[in-house]
């Protein structure tokens, strides 16, 4: 009768076994303590039962060695769990260097995905098997959370910042994709399916779907022209704004002396609130593009800016992140998980 009930989720990413092993370890530890204490409680309650209510218990007041023992042992066990957990956590939040980049926005009540090649989909996400994929996303309205149980990954989508998850799928098939942060009426309808495909099938799917508007990079370039970004951001650095060649992934100094690493969040901020973190040596001339370009457009522009730090700019761009991997956030709103730079998507 119980055979039809799932008791354990499918492991479909490289992260899943890591999380599950940790889970089983904690399960074993907690089961041990739960059974030990329950057994003692039941044993004592039965063995020392007295239904007259007139006897008194033994005059025992306590034992310092025992107290110290059962403070230290749980603490040491907790330390082991803590260390292991932290190791797994950093695995979950730190994507490898080369990832397939997918962008997404959450909006009540759907997930939109955009592949670098330009393919778009709603409440469905096609990814290739065996290749690290990084999904960068934000929200257009309230809080959401992108959650794929089979991959054991999850992160909140917060309006105004970027979050990301990464995974390498290990099993073809269809998996649930949920919104895990309550977002109003149809929260439970903000779900979708992740399709893990053989790399060849994925390539076929990418080209099959009839892409409109070209790749994200091409769309970004187009926007870059349309919005007249080119008038100031000249490639030779003589414009009124800084040149964007090779800037992605580098560290720049701001007008107030702080430094910031140019990542997705910083580029986004610079487009929408250009006055907030001005690069040193430039005048606050840039107007805001809030309302002129939507989240998808911003993501395309980011892909384009990334492409400007392609092979020729990579060496320089990589210096900062390699020197201080996972450096603490310079600016808090930039989204703390988003502090690494992967260089350019291939």
């Amino acid at each position: 009768m119980l055979s039809g009930i799932p008791l354990f989720p499918e492991q479909a990413s490289t992260l899943a076994p890591a999380v599950d092993n940790l889970y089983f370890f904690i399960l074993a530890v907690t089961a041990f303590f739960a059974l030990l204490v329950s057994a003692l409680v039941i044993y004592f309650a039965i063995k020392y039962r007295d239904d007259t209510g007139l006897k008194v218990g033994a005059p025992i007041t306590g034992s310092v060695p025992l107290e110290i023992g059962w403070s230290i042992i749980p603490f040491l066990v907790a330390i082991v769990i803590f260390v292991w957990s932290t190791v797994v956590f950093f695995q979950i939040i730190r994507p490898p260097d080369q990832t397939l980049e997918i962008y997404s926005t959450g909006k009540r009540w759907m997930w939109r995905f955009q592949h670098a090649d330009g393919q778009r989909e709603i409440n469905a996400l096609h990814v290739p098997l065996g290749r690290p994929v990084k999904v960068t996303f934000t929200s257009e309205d309230v809080l959401h959370d992108l959650y794929i149980p089979a991959f054991r990954v999850k992160a909140d989508a917060i309006p105004g910042r970027y979050s990301s998850i990464w995974f390498t799928a290990t099993k073809t098939g269809e998996y649930h994709l949920f919104c895990a942060e309550y977002c109003g009426t149809r929260h439970s309808g903000m779900i979708g399916t992740v399709y893990v495909m053989e790399p060849n099938d994925y390539q076929a799917w990418l080209t099959d779907g009839g892409i409109t508007g070209g790749s994200m990079q091409a769309r970004g370039e187009q926007l870059f022209q349309q919005l007249a970004c080119t008038t100031c951001h000249l490639t030779n650095g003589t414009g009124r704004g800084p040149s964007l060649s090779g800037v992605f992934g580098s560290t720049v100094t701001l007008s107030d002396g702080r430094t910031v690493t140019v990542d997705e969040s910083y580029v986004r901020e610079s487009i929408l609130t250009p006055q907030m973190k001005l690069v040193a040596g430039y005048q606050p001339l840039m107007p805001t593009f809030q309302g002129l370009v939507n989240e998808e457009g911003v993501m395309s522009l980011i892909e384009y800016v990334k492409s400007l730090s392609g092979s020729e700019g990579t060496a320089q761009a990589r210096v900062a992140p390699d020197a201080a991997p996972g450096a603490a956030p310079v600016a808090a709103p930039a989204g703390a998980i988003e502090q690494r730079n992967e260089g350019r998507t291939q």
Binding site: L40, G57, P74, I79
Partner: peptide
């Protein structure tokens, strides 16, 4: 996370002490 594990210890201490209180008591059901 670390501090959360730290707060677990006093809760564990309480549980162990309650269990030990039962030992050699005269337990009235």
């Amino acid at each position: 996370s670390f501090l959360t594990y730290a707060v677990a210890v006093p809760s564990a201490v309480k549980t162990f002490n309650w269990t030990a209180t039962l030992y050699r008591g005269a337990i009235w059901w």
